[in-house]
Design a binder for these strands. Structure first.
Lengths: 338, 338
DNA sequence: GGTATCGTTTAAGCCGGTTCAGATAACCGC
DNA sequence: GCGGTTATCTGAACCGGCTTAAACGATACC
């Protein structure tokens, strides 16, 4: 029952524990014969290193925290799977922590739980003005941000302004003139996706010589229900938009649902375009600006591992923006000139 | 820069490290005055316990692994969020590990990565015949299963036979007589959802005096694409079913897609019912047998924590089956008698 | 006043690795 | 044959808590 320790291996292999340690970790200064013998003994004894002991002695934890406001939502779980695949193959433990978001304030702040526990953190889409993010950054450990950016911190995002421009430009090119927008928080702050997407929308509207009209703007939660409610608001205006840019696919789904319940058909009566490239958007024939979500996670994880290994060596902060592309489906169509 | 240790706290508070240890962990045999003083000093010095040291000395890791074949899929991420909420409030670290599934065989087996690293494991929907599951069970650590069951291991599932019966019965009650099924693996083995759902379907078909007909059975991946392909297979039969039971909502989505591309309308031409209660099923007006997915995770986590704290004390293996309920929407309708 | 009792506190060993200064031995060129 | 390298290996001091046996002090009892 008593677990095998490094001393047992050392004794059986006839070497010191120091040699066993180096042999098993592939460090230099071990004779190849010795290394093989040690490895053989370790396997025979079914020896497994104790992570706690190793961590205590070395000061490295070999684990990374992923901090996210949501776990079950499509974007977040997809990012998470990208992160996981990288960490798994690097042999790093992934600690999952969710933080309280706008809706639930129940959870403890994550920062204290990180200290001495992980070598680095990946933070998904926590807005820069959230004190929880600041607390994490104040820890001064290797950190990568996904979906938002912050001064002096490596981050991986899409070009949100560009994505919104692509979506809006698509609607303009189809001849639409009353183009609405459905978005997240009304009071968006810089460095967030909401802010940039709203900016991209406005830019294109103005460039096209169209009117930026608050009546065409509806905000709500970044969810299906939020999108539905926002679309309902737009539909009850005196003058409805002929096309709507939704800041996320899920909001677009809600918008499409609202259309149907009003007897309208997406594409024919009102065009809808989203951002995400959600799997379901294909199902619903939603035109969308697809973003490489899995990649966001993958790249942020690789970036973080680099920070961790380059520890101490100053390097420039890498801010990466991945490309998006328009996927046209039947939810958008030329403005009918009837 | 040097981190504060328990010795620093002890020195400043004027007590021994043993007392600090007990004071901060709320153990008895500490004078209340002393405890307060120690706590105050700990806060002042901004002391954070070193998990590695604590784990090494105590033998408890304070963490739990969640092992899942998929991270980004709806069912799995929703279960995961349920697990996470419980572990978070219990102050337990959640280690996320994905395992290779039918599609990718790239990952290392999880069992070796668990030893000495976690106090217990939650395993999501790994089929009983998968050697990876057996290896985990052979570790003889506290374990809870979700979505499958195995001899002598606590598990949380729905009553899959019953769920399938409810779905199929619903179709029978609507007057359908040619009722097809779209499912996962053809060669399902006992203790899996696929197996039981297939059984429930067959039972009701037979009880209704209908013919169990292999021509009405189509299998594929447990995905949208899999469901689509399976439905296409059913549609190309000489005699089409008038209703189809899909083993998951995502397969049902695929089936609905296949219907539309054949110019058929779910509910009017062919009825479709799924199992899951996926958020999107409301969007698509899919009739479904809803299961409490978040609860599955929550309850399995609570069960595991109980195992861990009751460590050693023999207790009976709890096998829980949560209730499901039918949600009727417009994808199912009475058999038109035209 | 002496002793038993009980709650509180401490000293010191231990958990199981990592690491570094220094020992050993083999090999080198001169 | 000798000082100097170089590659390999070991002893022992950590890392930072936990835990147990023993000490301590105060009260209680006889």
């Amino acid at each position: 029952m008593a677990a095998i320790t490094i001393r047992d291996v050392a004794r059986v292999a006839g070497v010191s524990t120091a040699t066993v340690s180096r042999a098993l970790r592939g460090l230099p200064n071990v004779d190849e014969q010795t290394r093989l013998r040690v490895q053989r003994v370790a396997v025979e004894l079914d020896y497994v290193i104790s992570p706690s002991a190793s961590r205590l002695a070395s000061g490295r934890t070999g684990s990374v925290a992923v901090i996210t406001p949501y776990i079950a939502r499509w974007f977040f779980s997809t990012v998470l799977s990208g992160v996981e695949s990288v960490l798994q193959s690097a042999g790093i433990d992934l600690l999952l922590m969710s933080v309280s978001n706008g809706e639930s304030q129940l959870r403890l702040p994550p920062a204290p739980r990180l200290r001495r526990r992980v070598d680095g953190a990946i933070v998904i889409a926590i807005p820069p003005e959230d004190p929880q993010l600041q607390q994490i950054l104040d820890l001064h450990m290797p950190t990568s941000l996904i979906g938002v950016s912050a001064e002096g911190v490596p981050s991986v995002t899409i070009d949100d302004v560009m994505a919104a421009r692509i979506a809006t430009r698509h609607l303009v090119n189809l001849g639409h003139q009353r183009i609405g927008i459905i978005g997240g928080a009304t009071s968006a702050v810089p460095y967030t996706a909401e802010y940039d997407r709203f900016r991209g929308y406005q830019e294109v509207i103005q460039e096209a010589g169209l009117q930026v009209d608050p009546v065409l703007e509806a905000f709500g939660h970044f969810t299906i229900a939020g999108g539905e409610q926002a679309m309902i608001n737009l539909l009850t205006q005196r003058q409805r938009p002929t096309a709507v840019f939704a800041m996320s696919d899920e909001m677009a789904f809600g918008a499409m649902r609202a259309l149907r319940s009003h007897g309208l058909q997406p594409g024919r009566d009102i065009s809808i375009v989203g951002i995400d490239g959600h799997e379901v958007s294909e199902l619903l024939d939603l035109t969308t600006v697809a973003q490489p979500v899995h990649e966001l996670g993958r790249i942020a994880a690789e970036e973080l591992l680099e920070q961790i290994t380059m520890n101490g060596v100053a390097q420039k902060v890498r801010v990466r923006q991945l490309d998006t592309h328009l996927v046209v489906r039947s939810s958008t169509a030329p403005l009918s000139t009837t």
